[in-house]
């Protein structure tokens, strides 16, 4: 542009850059730096902290392997169930007259803070059937109450009679119980976003398919799903990032006991309970390394959509 100095755009950007620098860039860089220092951040120790994570020497106090595996379980099961349920509910609520009420009811948990959700569900999962709703239902069905948050057995244990046996980590009853709470909390979000995506498909496109000879399932699979795929990708990446950051739910409900730790709870423990800032920072960096590629993919995707618009 004529008559405009080169620094003027930077002037407008400066406040944002300053805020990002202080609250994002500096902490990130400093975390990376500390991950190469010892527990008090005094001496350079190279990759020792990362070695600790891989070797997992103290598997009872801080089970790094279990935390990583649990996080993978969250990532796959939580994301898949949330997106799948959200999609099914979006399609189903679109067909009923009380759609608004149904969606509101499913969305309400989103409005509750994670800590409150965790407290509510601790009561829900209480072993005593007089307190815990889930076990109340279980005992009504003639089954023994289950210690949902302590039980590290395989997930089908509460439902079928098998000899007690521990299943390979992370397939434990308590992990699935925790994930179920997350699903309860987040399905409203996927439902609302996916439902909006569904609404954006013009009725006559579906009617055209119907006249063309498509049944309801074919319309879903060949028209609705492909048109909604950008929305599904956005929801999925949001959930994946959410699962990688999972902290409060686990922290309040089990505090990572009974092998329910995830990476975020573990690095909190390492840094602020065991006071080993080195390992804590290294875990945070590991988490960052998982999140960054997903972020990059998401941003690329947005740019791609801008281009084809």
């Amino acid at each position: 542009m004529i008559g405009r100095a080169w620094w003027i755009p930077w002037l407008w950007l400066a406040p944002t850059l300053a805020l990002l620098g202080v609250f994002l860039v500096y902490p990130s860089v400093d975390t990376v730096r500390r991950s190469f220092l010892d527990e008090r951040s005094r001496e350079f120790v190279g990759f020792d902290n990362y070695q600790t994570i891989i070797d997992n020497p103290n598997s009872l106090a801080a089970d790094t392997h279990a935390a990583l595996l649990n996080n993978m379980l969250w990532l796959t099961v939580f994301t898949a169930v949330c997106v799948g349920l959200g999609l099914i509910m979006a399609v189903m609520t679109a067909r009923v007259r009380y759609e608004a009420a149904a969606k509101a009811a499913i969305f309400v948990p989103m409005a509750i803070s994670f800590v409150a959700v965790a407290v509510i569900w601790r009561f829900m999962y209480e072993v005593d059937p007089d307190v815990g709703t889930v076990n109340a239902i279980f005992s009504e069905l003639g089954k023994d109450p289950v210690a949902w948050l302590n039980n590290t057995q395989s997930p089908q244990r509460p439902f079928v009679d098998l000899p007690p046996a521990d299943s390979p980590a992370p397939f434990q009853v308590n992990n699935f119980a925790l994930i179920a709470v997350g699903v309860w909390n987040w399905t409203g979000f996927t439902l609302v976003i996916l439902s909006a995506g569904l609404k954006s498909i013009p009725d006559d496109v579906m009617e055209a398919a119907r006249v063309d000879g498509a049944g309801e399932w074919q319309i879903f699979r060949r028209i609705i799903l492909p048109i909604m795929s950008p929305t599904i990708v956005v929801v999925t990446t949001t959930l994946v990032i959410q699962t990688l950051k999972t902290f409060d739910l686990v922290f309040v409900m089990t505090n990572g006991r009974f092998k329910t730790d995830v990476v975020a709870t573990l690095f909190y423990k390492e840094a602020f309970v065991f006071r080993d800032f080195g390992v804590g920072a290294a875990l945070a960096v590991v988490l960052l390394l998982f999140v960054v590629p997903i972020m990059v993919l998401t941003i690329r995707r947005f740019q791609f959509q801008e281009e084809i618009r």
């Binding site: 013009p202 006559d204 496109v205 009617e207 055209a208 492909p226 048109i227 795929s229």
Partner: peptide, 9 residues
Amino acid sequence: FQSYALYPH
């Protein structure tokens, strides 16, 4: 259809 209703994808 009036809006053509082509399958956009």
